[in-house]
């Protein structure tokens, strides 16, 4: 929750994940990033079948294994041990990214450092800091049908993260379809449209949101 300027309202990390889960549809193939996006898996509505893709080569990610079922050959893209499901399938990395780049994955939920009003996203490097690499993030934002970014609305020091133009090196240009922060939800219908505010977190006013946002959006 954003706690600067005395503002303690807004969604928790888990509530942001739950909000993202509302975008799921029955039969969707979904790739979830590390951090808040991973929590989305806990909020799949009952009765809905959603197949999770792990870019290291698996469709149908199961829950963490019990201690006696741990298998070093079975991990997710965050290198955590996982389990398989009856409908799971394994494949190599080239095939995995063929389905990502080829537009076969319906939805990805990713964390962000910055999102711009032109729907650019920066989430892989900070100049001057150790660069660990982009992993599969650039491929996901370029190829998946719908891109949802979930992030805190402001940095810990209060600096807005939904900005006119990203200051950090980009992960993708004009790729974000929906932005969910702890304060609000923004959407755009297509890649030529600006973001529209569609939802405020409980207790957050439009004025409070505007005071913490430098990006232009339709309200």
């Amino acid at each position: 929750m954003t706690k600067h300027d005395g503002l303690t309202k807004g969604w928790s990390r888990d509530q942001m994940a739950a909000r993202a889960a509302q975008e799921l549809q029955d039969g969707f193939y979904v790739n979830l990033g590390i951090g808040i996006p991973t929590l989305v898996a806990n909020h799949v509505p009952a009765g809905m079948t959603v197949t999770l893709q792990s870019e290291n080569g698996m469709l149908g990610i199961g829950p963490f294994p019990t201690e006696d079922a741990i298998d070093p050959d079975l991990i997710n893209a965050g290198k955590q041990t996982i389990s398989q499901l009856p409908h799971s399938a394994y494949f190599d990395s080239a095939t995995s990214f063929a389905m990502i780049r080829g537009g076969k994955i319906d939805l990805t939920v990713l964390g962000g450092m910055e999102v711009s009003e032109a729907a650019d996203i920066a989430n892989w490097m900070v100049p001057g800091k150790m660069i660990k690499g982009m992993g599969g993030a650039m491929d996901l934002v370029a190829g998946v049908k719908k891109i949802i970014v979930v992030m805190e609305h402001c940095a810990k020091d209060g600096t807005p993260k939904f900005v006119p133009a990203c200051t950090l090196p980009l992960t993708g240009r004009n790729v974000v379809d929906m932005l969910i922060t702890d304060l609000a939800v923004f959407k755009r219908p297509d890649h030529a449209a600006p973001f529209q505010l569609v939802e405020l977190a409980p207790g957050v006013t439009a004025e409070e949101l505007a005071a913490r946002t430098t990006a232009h959006y339709l309200s």
Binding site: S93, A94, S96, R101, G133, G135, G136, A137, M138, D139
Partner: peptide, 14 residues
Amino acid sequence: VEFSPQGTLAERMR
């Protein structure tokens, strides 16, 4: 270090 996006790296090999 040459950073290559994961899917691009896999496809460059393939």
